[in-house]
Simulated scan of single mutants.
Amino acid sequence: MCERRLDFTSALYLGLRHPCHELAPWPALTLGKPAALEEVPGARAVAHDLAQLQGCAAATLLPSTLHLFWDLFGMLAGERYAVLVDEACYPVARWGAERAAALGLPLRTFRAATLAGGAAWADATGRRPLILADGYRPGRPEAPPLALYAATAARYGGLLVLDDTQPLGVLGEQGGGSVRAHGLQGMPVLVGASLAKGFGVPVAVLAGDAGTIARFEAVSETRLHASPPSAATVLAAAHALRLNRERGDSMRGALARRVGQFRAALAAQGLQVEGGAFPVQAVRLPGWMRLGDVHEALRRDGVQAVPQRRNGTARLTFLLRADHTAAEIAQAAATVGHHLKELA
């Protein structure tokens, strides 16, 4: 059994970890009061910087995307929307949409090819389309056509809500995510995202136009009834944004090189990898090969990957990071190739 572990299960894409000695000191973890009464020191400045990074006019912080989408769809449920949910949407944002449905909004799922029909259905019922989608869904070769989604929302006076957790920090100018990557500035778009992946901070941000963000803060239930992000978390977010300004492009360049190296090494062994240029790379297994056997063989050789089964197909998924070395990528690819041939 290998003693050294190569971890490909962590979504800290840029390799940011924020140990306490790198952060400014904090006098208390919490103020003991909700954000509706008083913001944690530094939260407003971090939200402002995140809004600018994402190409939006304003932003606000929440403890998690669960808090964010619960509140957001609770607010939007009071308007004449029909909810259109991309069938590939991540569960947490979908739970928010389902809350809106429970509060009375009609809901349908869609694919890119059926969005126009869904928007026309909403319009025919006297409602505006409220379109929910992920900025990027790992495992897909490319992002959904977000410009089309935003244009469809604008055509009918509707709104596009994005879960941008995967792209934030990784895609777009300076890691600003999908609004910048797809040129959606000025479109009817609200962006919810966690910083826990690209920036390594467990806090969420809702960004959009200033009026909507102000209204959200005024009616938010979790800003009133739940604890806000901790002081340590806000400091870590400020630290992440500073590092992003100083060397974010360098980290994203290193990450892109690791992805390219991993894909090329497996392709050289005749293995197909899913995931495009994004740092979540999946190796599809033959139907007769047992996922548990391959996963355990890799584990014994010191390579930790994520075993997944989607639509009846087994995959081993590797989450690549900017702080993986070239030698670690080469070792992981060689180990995968060895065991797939051994178990064939």
Rank of each mutant, 00 (worst) to 15 (best):
R245M: 02
E246S: 09
E246Y: 01
E246I: 06
R247T: 07
R247N: 14
R247M: 09
R247S: 14
G248H: 10
G248C: 11
D249C: 11
S250F: 14
S250K: 13
M251L: 15
M251R: 15
R252G: 12
R252S: 13
R252F: 13
G253F: 09
G253A: 15
G253I: 06
G253N: 12
A254N: 03
A254M: 13
A254L: 15
L255S: 12
L255G: 09
L255P: 07
R258T: 04
R258C: 06
V259W: 00
G260C: 06
G260F: 03
Q261P: 00
Q261H: 12
Q261F: 01
Q261W: 07
F262S: 00
F262C: 05
F262W: 04
F262T: 03
F262Y: 09
R263A: 12
R263M: 11
R263T: 14
A264V: 06
A264N: 09
A265K: 00
A265M: 04
A265Q: 11
L266T: 01
L266I: 06
A267M: 05
A267D: 10
A267Q: 14
A267N: 12
A267I: 05
A268M: 05
A268Q: 13
Q269R: 12
Q269V: 02
Q269D: 10
Q269F: 07
G270I: 05
G270D: 10
G270S: 09
L271S: 01
L271C: 03
L271D: 05
L271Y: 08
L271R: 10
Q272C: 08
Q272L: 13
V273L: 09
V273M: 00
V273P: 07
V273R: 02
V273A: 06
E274D: 14
E274S: 11
E274I: 06
E274H: 14
G275L: 13
G276S: 12
G276Y: 05
G276L: 11
A277C: 03
A277D: 15
A277M: 05
F278Y: 15
F278K: 04
F278W: 08
F278L: 09
F278P: 04
P279G: 01
P279F: 07
P279L: 10
V280H: 08
Q281H: 05
Q281V: 07
Q281N: 00
Q281R: 02
Q281P: 00
A282H: 04
A282N: 01
V283A: 03
V283H: 03
V283G: 02
R284H: 06
R284A: 15
L285Y: 01
L285Q: 00
P286F: 06
P286Y: 04
P286A: 13
P286D: 13
P286Q: 09
G287R: 05
G287T: 09
G287L: 07
M289W: 14
M289G: 04
